[in-house]
Design a protein around this nucleic acid. Structure first.
Lengths: 112, 112
DNA sequence: TGCGAATATTCGATAGATCGAATATACTAA
DNA sequence: TTAGTATATTCGATCTATCGAATATTCGCA
């Protein structure tokens, strides 16, 4: 049973394990937004955004509400904002290592 | 630059996006452990554990210290424990949905 | 009814993650 | 040196994620 709990946690982390989905969650910090408004802020293909929203929906991280033509999204539980804030502190507290790590990631992304 | 921060956060979440690695981090809650001791608690193949440790090391989530024959691991920054604790609260606050979600995941794992 | 806008889904290609098996490395002790 | 223990790395197979392109759905309005 405790391994089921870990699977649950892992699946939440997995849902957040993409820069685009983090941007979505951050965009929803202040309140609900339509899919189109999210797209403006995140700047990604419509279909791709919709896929990312589906990932977050499937983990119940966000919920949606339809109004006419549009679909409005919001965070189901704002505690995740807390997690992102802690991550920011974590990042700042370890800035030099984080930057080194990012450079490494960048270097791997564009070989030579 | 804000997108670099999101990549960083995403890479941390990605590192935690596996039940086995969550078990490792939880095992290190109380302090450092040798790789062998971690293996006992997590219950996974030696090579596989070592691969998971490598993932956590590459994100600087854990650090290691060699002593003779053994390698001792510990959390580099205990703030991650805070994150896991928040996740526990999140889980408890949303228990019914979480259980529904887990059942769904289970059902997909064993079709028919 | 039929068109256009907003959003979602499906598909196929590519890239990345995971695993066990085999092997390598590093250290200790005889 | 040799054997043994602890840990790490490499390899190849399989599974999962991501993306853009194409298409489907849903709704409001003329």
């Amino acid at each position: 049973m405790q391994s089921a709990l870990r699977s649950f946690k892992a699946s939440i982390f997995q849902a957040l394990a993409h820069p685009c989905r983090i941007a979505i969650v951050e965009a929803l910090r202040e309140g609900e937004l339509s899919a189109g408004a999210i797209q403006e802020r995140v700047g990604v293909e419509q279909a791709n955004l919709s896929q990312h929203l589906a990932v977050l929906r499937s983990r119940q991280i966000i919920v949606n509400r339809k109004e006419g033509n549009q679909v409005f999204y919001s965070l189901r539980d704002p505690v995740l904002i807390e997690v992102l804030d802690i991550m920011r502190r974590y990042f700042q507290a370890n800035l030099s290592q984080a930057i080194a790590m990012l450079e490494e990631v960048e270097a791997e992304r564009q070989p030579q």
